[in-house]
């Protein structure tokens, strides 16, 4: 009797503990999404910002050591990242295997948002053009050679020299851009931007996989997003893509 009662008691205590813990967790999760919904209404915001406070200004905390006059820049992007080969396949107009035949110059990709036929007044978008020699097609109608335009940074036009503006190919890509390399076989997932000029660009990231030593390694900006693709087998990727073209 005593043993029986105790077992029930222990079981009940455990169940209660679990139920209580789970409900508290659920309540706290629900609470955090409620905070999101309680965001201030857009209309209540007056522009420019009201700044009623006066406060001590930061002293001596300006540029860190070694960064004065440093014009080398790096980029952080927001989205759009694919999480699987299937997602990449859906977003790409064209999927090919190929390699860089030559670097064919630079275009300014930053256009005026109020009139996209005109270049931007203040920003230069470094779009480097790579001619890609195609040796296998998996998706899309593709010529034997196509051009890939890769975004390699943005610059304030005021910071570029006249020489750089006259010859934009001389503008170096920003510090952290992992550019497409000559001599490496790649699988490219591409989006058609200009069909007359056969110009293509990334539909999302990653958009290219280097085929090296039997592996298909994603390359390009923000590698930390790509754990889902790391260390894939090259032959199985190619096999998977070949079923698309059949």
């Amino acid at each position: 009797m005593m043993i029986h009662f105790s077992k029930t008691y222990v079981a009940a205590a455990l169940i209660l503990a679990v139920v209580a813990a789970v409900s508290v967790t659920v309540i706290s999760v629900a609470g955090s999404s409620n905070t999101d919904e309680a965001a201030p209404a857009l209309a209540s915001h007056s522009d420019p910002h009201p700044h009623p406070h006066s406060h001590p200004h930061a002293v001596g905390s300006a540029d860190g050591p070694g960064v004065d006059g440093d014009t080398m820049v790096a980029l952080n992007f927001d989205g759009t990242f694919a999480r699987s080969i299937g997602e990449l396949t859906d977003t790409a107009d064209v999927i090919v295997k190929g390699r860089v035949a030559r670097v064919a110059g630079v275009i300014n990709t930053a256009m005026n948002p109020d009139d996209p036929s005109q270049p931007h007044a203040e920003v230069f978008g470094l779009g480097r053009i790579y001619e890609i020699e195609v040796d296998e097609r998996f998706k899309g109608e593709v010529p034997g050679r196509l051009t890939l335009v890769q975004n390699e940074g943005y610059f304030d036009i005021g910071e570029l020299s006249e020489k750089q503006l006259e010859n934009p190919s001389s503008i170096e890509s920003v510090g952290n851009v992992d550019t497409v390399k000559p001599g490496v076989d790649y699988v490219f997932f591409l989006r058609s931007v200009d069909s007359e000029l056969a110009r293509y660009a990334a539909p999302s990231y990653p958009y290219r996989f280097a085929l090296v030593e039997g592996k298909a390694e994603p390359e390009g900006n923000l590698k930390e997003e790509w754990s889902a693709f790391a260390g894939a087998d090259a032959e199985s990727l190619l096999g998977q893509l070949r079923t698309l073209s059949n």
Binding site: V73, A74, N76, T80, G125, A202
Partner: peptide
């Protein structure tokens, strides 16, 4: 900006 060659909606550039 308007940039059809970059699929990212936003960019932060820095030294």
């Amino acid at each position: 900006i308007w940039d059809q060659y970059n699929p990212s909606p936003g960019t932060f550039s820095h030294n």
